[in-house]
């Protein structure tokens, strides 16, 4: 464990809590992409199957369980409890355009052709693009609530911090996972436009709106 990974994990946890709190407090999931959230639940489910086969640490097990539970909790709030507030008209990104190619790629490019390893690879690839429906939704409506933009900033920062963690681990532990690093860089790049808008608008007290 190093400081980058720890702060990355904390940012990730913070993002998930922020989203749950936003939905709970406002009793609404308006502006949140149910498709991105479904894919995140799929990401955690396929990645953390090793909860059953491997024990790494109490920290690792606890965080994995929190991530899985919270992703399904978010889906419950969005698709059952506050279903009436779900903005499906604006959530029109086609998930199959991401899930199908990512599934194909995880069969072709992986560390080991075994079920758990392929599912782990699938989750890494899917995570890198799972935010696209959310970003697409914001580009369609032209704006995001401030709390939603805080959520996205925390969520994007997490993988950026992981990149620093991988640089650290490469130099100090000789650890290098090409699949995670490439996917993590792709994931972070997808946020760059959002990061720019967030820093130039939300940090100056304005709402996140897209230039016309």
């Amino acid at each position: 464990m190093n400081v980058f990974r720890l702060t990355g994990d904390i940012a990730h946890l913070l993002a998930i809590i922020l989203l749950l709190m936003k939905i709970w407090k406002t009793r609404s999931c308006a502006g949140v992409s149910g498709k991105s959230q479904m894919m995140f639940a799929l990401v955690f489910t396929t990645r953390y199957l090793d909860l059953i086969t491997n024990f790494i640490s109490l920290y690792n097990t606890t965080m994995k369980m929190i991530f899985i539970a919270s992703s399904y909790g978010t889906l419950y709030l969005m698709f059952l409890k506050f279903r009436a507030t779900y903005d499906s008209n604006h959530d029109t990104f086609r998930m199959e355009f991401l899930v199908v190619p990512v599934a194909g790629l995880s069969f072709l490019v992986n560390h080991d052709f075994s079920p758990l390893e392929i599912l782990w690879t699938f989750s890494i690839y899917l995570e890198s693009v799972a935010i696209l429906p959310q970003l697409f939704m914001i580009s369609k409506t032209g704006e995001a609530e401030t709390i939603t933009s805080h959520y996205l900033f925390a969520l994007g920062s997490y993988r950026a911090l992981y990149i620093l963690n991988w640089v650290y681990r490469f130099y100090f532990e000789g650890f290098f996972d090409l699949i995670a690093v490439v996917a993590g860089c792709v994931q972070t790049v997808l946020y760059c436009d959002f990061f720019y808008l967030y820093i130039t608008k939300v940090w100056k007290g304005k709402k996140l709106t897209l230039p016309a």
């Binding site: 990974r5 994990d9 491997n54 994995k64 080991d112 782990w120 650890f175 090409l178």
Partner: peptide
Amino acid sequence: LIGSRKKDEL
């Protein structure tokens, strides 16, 4: 260490 080993990251 390349890739496939016990995954300690989240």
